[in-house]
Design a protein around this nucleic acid. Structure first.
Length: 466
RNA sequence: GGUGGAGUGGCCGAGAGGCGAGGCUCAGGACUGCAAAUCCUGCCACACGGGUUCAAAUCCCGUCUCCACCUCCA
């Protein structure tokens, strides 16, 4: 039996995961700055860490998972001005969109989801500690800066040297003692939202927020800190500087997810809105989008393409179809089961692509078992597939993916049954024109008919989406 | 300039010294009244040039191309 090993950006190797507190795991993921609609790149990050969280829980650990919301930021202020609504209204609007997107993809809500603006007090306390230790300074204009040269170590995560960094571009007139110093607190300009501090009124810098919230919810030391690759520098380096500066051990393991790219480039506003979650959900179901986004290894770049998404949808529907048939044949719901191979794959730094191969192989075995009417093998294959899908968050029987509204299946089943009886009568008298007419008519309504050795069965057919 | 990542079959996407992951597509076959579904078979790939080795997609050296970060970023 293997045990979980994860890649740590700090050490740049895969090493065994040993929780700080036996039986527990504490995770912090840098969440969204709610200044726009979520695109699939944002959601991939939440999704990758949702799979990690599910696996930790499945492994028997009690998980505390924090994902924050950055609800105050330069861009939020800019966009609020453009949309002519208060900054907090803009933040709330997009926070809700993020929540809806996470929910549509079955990304479970974190244990706690703190907003930056709710933790100003803790941020001021942290700044006070840093100033008292001589690591930060307030130049008198209501800004507060971290003095990078006073730190024992800096840039240990990105393995860079301060002198190799390109200049920050802070020209003359800056209040910074060094261009590499970073803002803990930004003094307010006229008309901007502000909170008062001993050094003047202003708002928090992005890095300070995470350090303060982590300390509030997870304490001085915790197991895993996650985020996108681009956060390594400066964001995570600066979190380390702030938190370790006051003596907190901070994160034990650093994990970073890779991008979703489009046209070979990092996703950005210039690519338009087509890759927003809400746009894609008009074309594919949430579970299908999740299957696609979650299928690549979290540390691999993903090049988005419609063809690849369509492929993923096709393969997922085959699996779904197999599970549905298995339930029909067995006459009872499947019991999610973990195979030893699956456990080994997940323990190896979440080797999801290997799991996908296992699912395919298991499905082949299961389909052969259906043809041979071997109920034992059908059940073991289907149970293991459902067990794997559950951890991946793609269990088709998960109520999270249930359709809204009344369940019409029994009525539909009856109505379609009548049509199928008519068709069978036509087939019995070899009147294939009529039988095909019935089948085609149902197909036009999105109902696919298959003739199996156990008789005809119906299902909702894939429709052309693009 | 500094720090990292990547180049795998028609497409997507794993692996990381030796038995050609898997998916999608396509072609052929079995089954079928015909379809669909399913199964079987085929399409034997690792940017380029050297090297190490009995053996290299995997290790080493060099080259080319692409991407990311370097104070807005998932």
């Amino acid at each position: 039996m293997s045990s979980l090993a994860l890649y740590n950006t700090m050490t740049r190797e895969i090493s065994s995961f040993v929780p700080l507190k036996p039986g527990q795991a504490s995770l912090y993921l840098c969440g969204a700055t709610v200044q726009g609609s979520p695109h699939i790149g944002h959601i991939r990050s939440g999704l990758n860490f949702d799979i990690l969280r599910r696996w930790l829980e499945k492994s028997g650990l009690e998980v505390t998972f924090i994902r924050n919301v950055t609800d105050i930021d330069d861009k939020i202020l800019q966009k609020a001005a453009i949309e002519q609504i208060p900054w907090w209204a803009l933040a709330a609007k997009y926070e809700r969109e993020f929540s809806q997107s996470y929910a549509a993809l079955n990304v479970a809500p974190p244990t706690y989801e703190p907003r930056a603006t709710g933790h100003i007090t803790q941020m001021v306390e942290l700044m006070t500690l840093l100033i008292d230790k001589g690591l930060a300074y307030a130049p008198g204009n209501a800004d507060v800066y971290m003095e990078v040269s006073k730190l024992d170590s800096y840039l240990s995560l990105s393995h860079q040297r301060v002198e190799d960094l390109q200049s920050a571009g802070d020209g003359a007139g800056s209040y910074k003692r060094s261009p590499h110093d970073f803002a803990l607190w930004k003094g307010a300009k006229a008309g901007e939202p502000a909170w008062s501090t001993p050094w003047g009124s202003g708002r928090p810098g992005w890095h300070l927020e995470c350090s303060a919230m982590i300390h509030t919810y997870l304490g001085e030391a915790f197991d895993i800190h996650g985020g996108g690759l681009d956060l390594i520098f400066p964001h995570h380096e600066n979190e380390i500087a702030q938190s370790q500066g006051v003596g907190w051990p901070f994160a034990n393991i650093w994990m970073h997810n890779a991008w979703v790219t489009a046209a070979g480039e990092k996703m950005g506003k210039s690519l338009g809105n087509s890759l927003q979650v809400k746009a894609l959900l008009k074309k594919v179901r949430g579970i299908e989008l999740r299957w696609y986004l979650g299928g690549a290894h979290y540390r691999s770049m993903m090049e988005f393409s419609q063809v690849a998404l369509d492929d993923a949808v096709t393969s997922f529907r085959r699996i779904e179809n197999f599970l549905n048939r298995s339930v029909e044949i067995l006459g009872h719901q499947l019991v999610p089961t973990l195979s030893p191979d699956f456990v080994d794959a997940m323990n190896n730094d979440l080797a999801v692509p290997v799991v996908l191969a296992q699912i395919s192989e298991n499905m082949r075995i299961g389909n052969i078992a259906i043809a041979a009417d071997d109920r034992g093998k059908i059940e073991s294959s289907a149970n293991e597939i459902r067990g794997a899908l559950e951890v991946l968050g793609c269990d088709p029987f998960d109520p999270a993916f249930a359709k809204d509204g009344a369940d019409l299946s029994p009525a539909l089943d009856g109505v379609i049954g009548i049509a199928l009886a008519q068709r069978q009568a036509a087939r019995d008298r070899k009147d294939f024109a009529v039988s095909d007419e019935i089948r085609d008519g149902l197909a036009d309504l999105g109902i696919a008919i298959e003739d199996t050795s156990q008789g005809p069965r119906w299902s909702f057919s894939p429709t052309e989406k693009w």
